[in-house]
């Protein structure tokens, strides 16, 4: 049984002048249990539409979708899935804590168990310090974090994340990436849409690329990206004569050097270094706080 399976899933939207806009065009794909699947594609290619169809938020024009073998037209299919919408909007007058509690109640949780879960999730997404602030005052990245917390509230086996790192700062993105890996380690299945290809490459087992509502490429990330004929060293403290020796050795063994030079410091590394060294001085920066340590696997 697959975590997600779609058959000929199609969605047309009516636009002005009765013209039809194709949101998704006969999509057949499956997400296996306990894998991280990355759905990629240009703007408007149908990624968000796919997620909404899988959640029963949109009705398919044609075809069908299943979550763990259950048709998505049944409300019960949503007991095992958590959803982070793109640009999440929640009630602006609720505080962060109230928001997570509200969604927990909707999932039938209450009492001690709910309160513990709320506290645990707020810590997990690094919003403990802002739990009593209203969402009207949250920044975009903070909303994204609260969205992630509410998606996880009922411990779903499957997570659908629509651009989980949009608007999140680089450190937050790395934390979310680590969180995704951790969730996979806990046996969860993830379907994620993203434009950040580096990240997708890091966390996804498989990817699919949508274009105009059609799947144009699908496969294992490793298979798709492996360039087995090329290899790269990055060295430190290599003297000039040593370099010459290395070049000679490579040529002697029949290899060919395609490129060489100093690897540039990426802006990301620079950003991370400076923020981390500033953080070391102060305990709490202004924005969302870094979680002290991620709680270990849940039951």
């Amino acid at each position: 049984m697959h975590a997600i399976e779609t058959r000929s899933l199609t969605k047309h939207f009516r636009s002005t002048w009765r013209r039809r806009v194709v949101g998704l065009d006969h999509l057949n794909f499956a997400v296996r249990e306990n894998e991280v699947y990355g759905l990629l594609g240009p703007n408007g290619s149908g990624k968000s539409t796919t997620l909404k169809l899988i959640l029963g938020l949109y009705r398919p024009s044609e075809g069908e979708a299943e979550i763990f073998g259950m048709g998505v037209e049944r409300t019960a299919s949503r007991t095992r899935v958590g959803y982070l919408p793109e640009n999440p909007y929640f009630y602006r007058y609720l505080t962060g804590e109230e928001t997570v509690r509200f969604f927990g109640r909707l999932c039938g949780m209450r009492g001690r168990r709910l309160e513990e879960k709320v506290a645990e999730l707020l810590a997990l997404v690094g919003l403990e310090a802002h739990r009593h602030r209203r969402l009207a005052g949250y920044s975009k990245g903070m909303l994204q974090r609260i969205g992630l917390a509410q998606a996880l509230v009922h411990d779903p086996r499957l997570l659908l994340l629509d651009e989980p790192t949009a608007g999140v700062d680089p450190i937050g993105s790395i934390e979310i990436r680590d969180l995704i890996l951790k969730l996979r380690g806990m046996g969860k299945t993830l379907l994620l849409c993203s434009h950040l290809l580096d990240q997708v490459q890091d966390v996804c087992d498989r990817i699919g690329i949508l274009h105009y509502g059609k799947m144009i490429l699908e496969g294992d990330v490793k298979d798709l990206l492996a360039r087995r004929e090329q290899f790269q060293f990055i060295c430190e403290d290599l003297t000039d004569p040593a370099r010459t020796k290395v070049r000679e050795a490579i040529r002697a063994s029949g290899g060919r050097i395609v490129s060489e030079g100093n690897p540039a410091t990426t802006l990301e590394q620079l950003f991370l270094q400076s923020v981390r060294s500033a953080d070391r001085g102060k305990a709490v920066a202004s924005g969302a706080t870094r979680p002290v340590d991620l709680p270990t696997a849940q039951p």
Binding site: L57, V81, Y89, L106
Partner: peptide
Amino acid sequence: DNRTIYPILAKPVHR
């Protein structure tokens, strides 16, 4: 309009 309905109906909540 505020799209607050999406995360709610994405939970196991009947319409």
